[in-house]
Simulated scan of single mutants.
Amino acid sequence: MHKNSKMSGMRFLLVTVLNALITVVELFGGVLSGSLALLSDAFHNLGDSASVVLAYVASRIGLKNSNMSKTFGYRRAEIISAFVNSVFLIVVSFFLIIESVRRILNPEPVNGGIMLIVAIVGTLANFISALLLSSGAKGSLNIKATYLHILSDALSSFGIVIGAIIIQVWHIDIVDPIVTILVSVYIMWETWPVLKEAINILMQGAPNLDFEAMKHDMLQEPGVVNVHHIHAWQIDENRIMFSAHINLNDQLLSDVEPVYRHLENLLQKKYHVDHVTLQAEVFRGKSNELFTRDRHDI
Rank of each mutant, 00 (worst) to 15 (best):
D250L: 10
I298C: 10
I61G: 11
M10G: 01
L253W: 13
E78A: 09
D297S: 14
L263T: 04
G112T: 02
L253R: 11
K3G: 10
N208C: 11
I165F: 06
I128P: 06
I298P: 00
N45Y: 06
S86G: 15
F283I: 04
E264C: 02
N4V: 06
A280R: 10
Y271L: 05
P207W: 13
L248Y: 14
L21T: 02
F127K: 01
L96Q: 01
S156G: 09
G30R: 06
L89D: 03
K269S: 11
L96V: 09
G29K: 07
V91A: 13
F12V: 01
G223I: 00
D48A: 03
F283D: 06
V92P: 01
E289K: 11
P258T: 04
H229R: 13
A125Y: 06
A58G: 08
G205T: 05
S184K: 11
E190V: 08
R75Q: 15
L38T: 00
V185G: 03
S5M: 08
P207C: 07
D274V: 00
A280D: 05
L14W: 07
N65G: 12
V84G: 15
I240R: 15
S35W: 05
D274H: 15
L27S: 09
L151I: 01
I240C: 08
G62V: 00
R295P: 03
L39A: 10
D294E: 14
F43E: 00
L27D: 01
S66N: 07
E108A: 15
